[in-house]
Design a binder for these strands. Structure first.
Lengths: 212, 212
DNA sequence: AGCTTAAGTGGTCAATTGACAACTTATGCC
DNA sequence: GGCATAAGTTGTCAATTGACCACTTAAGCT
């Protein structure tokens, strides 16, 4: 009975640790509730007083910026390009790569990204370069190699980028349907994603060849 | 000089007219600023006092519901399926149909829809049936006919629906990139959309044939 | 013109919200 | 143990916000 030990109050964390904790939790809350959620609610979700948020981040905007930085602009979080380089069939490699991207780009990330974009926070422009380097170019180069096209060391042409964006849009839209529209995918989206890759691969190489 | 005629104060509109005006303007404001915008700001954008909003709609939620109803659940606003039935080449017909959809689904509509979905307003589920009837099935049937497959009078199978959804996702993602991500498309998105349709048509018919 | 009625306004209230100053206390170091 | 310092809290303030009541006035009818 007398389990008198009071709740294990974890107080007085070192600043770096607390800061990371606040940013992580705030990301979830912003993603779910939007950036207009009161700072008091964020603090409560963090198990901390509202005033402490202001000790760590001088303003609500600064907290938002810290969240976006941590989630989208820091070096961590690039999807693993390993699946692209196996000796499996091309379609399988690309599907596996994108399945990794969809898993890594968590629900929180998608919600945050869309909310930030809707609210004019200029995130997509800042994120654009990373998208090209981490996702679009690796995919295009993989397809080119598989079809005997020469792989240049330069940035994607506009046309190549759009071809890659078609598949990317399909993958992101799958995630939007599940996470934002709340469409149920009882067996995950692997089957649908594989089909998308099949269809895309039926037409994309010819388009790529056209691009000089 | 003495254009002494004072500002043409349009006051005392008939209720139906005023109501429509409020809903239309509120849709724009919600789309731009999100559903958390103060009712006072909406009223100001309408050129009306905040109290009047409460005369017409008993609460903020009721106003939001009226906006979503008017934009997504009323009978108006179905995209024109005319372009699907011309005697132009298949790719051109589908591209033209979707260009119409992208133009009709205005920026305001896309923003509203995403915001509503993000905020858990359950709009996608309510809108789903209309999407099938107005867009996905017409497209699939057009492709089937062009490829000599029999067109049934029943609803789409799950597989057919996903095949259509692939193209739909590409089109919506184009709009998202322009409207939400604010990516510039100097020459409109007709060129990219046409390319998407080409690629899709290279693989989709084979997938459709598989679906029995 | 006079009157009725619906359209629209001004002002107010309690609750909420971003921000912060003053205060308290846990924790590591000697 | 004693204590310096950073970690965390309490309480407060002005501005904002959803809601609404009492009041004013334009339009149509006769």
């Amino acid at each position: 009975m007398s389990d008198a030990a009071p709740a294990p109050k974890r107080r007085r964390l070192p600043a770096a640790e607390r800061s990371a904790l606040l940013v992580a939790k705030a990301a979830e809350v912003f993603a779910e509730q939007g950036f207009t959620i009161p700072t008091r609610d964020i603090a409560q979700a963090c198990g901390v007083t509202q005033a402490l948020l202001y000790k760590y981040f001088g303003s609500k905007d600064a907290l938002i910026e810290a969240v976006l930085e941590a989630r989208f602009l820091s070096e961590r979080g690039a999807p693993d390009t390993g699946p692209l380089a196996t000796d499996a069939p091309l379609a399988e490699r690309i599907a596996d790569f994108y399945l990794g991207f969809l898993a890594a780009g968590s629900e929180t990330n998608l919600r945050l990204f869309l909310r930030a974009a809707l609210d004019g926070l200029d995130l997509p422009a800042r994120y654009g370069a990373r998208l090209d380097a981490r996702i679009l170019k690796p995919v295009i180069d993989t397809v080119k190699r598989a079809h005997g096209l020469t792989v240049a060391d330069r940035a994607l042409t506009r046309g190549e980028r759009e071809i890659a964006m078609m598949l990317h849009g399909c993958a992101v839209f799958l995630m939007i349907r599940r996470v934002i529209y709340r469409t149920p995918f009882p067996r995950g989206y692997a089957p649908e994603l594989r089909r998308h890759v099949r269809v895309w691969l039926a037409g994309a190489p010819a388009e790529l060849a056209r691009e000089r």
